[in-house]
Amino acid sequence: MKLNRRKFITRLLVAVASIEALFLIKGSVNKVASASATNNLFNAGKASSFDTNKLYPFLTGQFFLKRFEDGGFLAMSFKCTHLGCVVNTNSQTGGFNCPCHASQFNKFGEVLSAPATRPLDYFPITIEKGELLIDTKTPIRRSSFDKSQLTYV
């Protein structure tokens, strides 16, 4: 097989373009992965600014942030686990009510009365430099409340 100058240059250009395309694709995939990891975190503010035994609604993040008596934080979804209606707070019980079908939840998001069959979903919380970062893109389904779901400073 004889290789003339035209075929050599063509093959060389195709090889260089292929290598460049691989680097471009690899770079854009890495940028998307790192950007999406930081965009998923909702910054709720300094942990020290939240009083114990209080509930804080975050409308833009669509979650309730509760700080319990022992200082633990729990971020619970606004959405009822029955059909996805937005739950309201119940100031008398400290829990939540679903206005659509009357499901009730306690302060930990556990079901008190049907038709909901499981507790409110919760979001993972990480603390960096005293700031509460809530991963609102990753709701976690649960069958009951467990103390390990709380995040401490």
Score class of each variant (00 low, 15 high):
Asp51His: 10
Phe63Ala: 00
Asn97Tyr: 09
Lys107Met: 06
Leu55Asn: 08
Gly84Asn: 07
Asp51Ala: 15
Lys46Leu: 11
Gln92Ser: 14
Leu59Trp: 10
Leu83Cys: 08
Val87Tyr: 11
His101Asn: 11
Phe64Asn: 02
Glu69Arg: 09
Lys79Tyr: 13
Gln62Trp: 00
Lys107Phe: 06
Pro99Tyr: 12
Ser49Lys: 13
Gly94Phe: 10
Cys98Val: 13
Asn90Thr: 12
Phe63Arg: 06
Ser49Thr: 13
Thr81Arg: 09
Phe105Tyr: 15
Asn53Arg: 14
Ser103Asn: 09
His82Val: 10
Asn88Gln: 10
Gly71Tyr: 02
Gln92Asn: 12
Lys54Gln: 15
Leu65His: 03
Asp70Ala: 01
Asn53Glu: 15
Asn97Leu: 14
Gln62Met: 07
Phe105Gln: 07
Asn90Ala: 11
Pro57His: 09
Gly71Ser: 15
Lys54Glu: 02
Thr89Cys: 01
Lys107His: 11
Ser48Tyr: 05
Gly61Ser: 01
Ser91Thr: 12
Asn90Pro: 05
Lys54Gly: 00
Lys54Cys: 00
Gly95Asp: 08
Thr81Val: 10
Leu59Tyr: 13
Thr93Val: 10
Asn90Cys: 06
Asn88Thr: 13
Asn90Trp: 04
Phe68Ile: 00
Leu55Asp: 06
Leu65Lys: 04
Cys85Thr: 12
Gly84Lys: 09
Leu55Ala: 09
His82Arg: 09
Ser91Ala: 10
Arg67Cys: 03
Thr93Leu: 04
Asp70Ile: 04
Cys85Lys: 12
Ala75Asn: 02
Leu65Ser: 03
Lys79Asp: 14
Asn90Leu: 05
Asp70Met: 01
Phe105Pro: 05
Ser48Glu: 14
Leu74Gly: 01
Val86Lys: 15
Asn97Ser: 15
Gln62Arg: 14
Ala102Arg: 13
Leu55Ser: 15
Gln62Asn: 15
Leu83Ser: 11
Lys79Cys: 03
Gln62Tyr: 04
Leu83Ala: 15
Phe96Trp: 09
Phe68Asn: 03
Cys100Arg: 07
Gln62Leu: 01
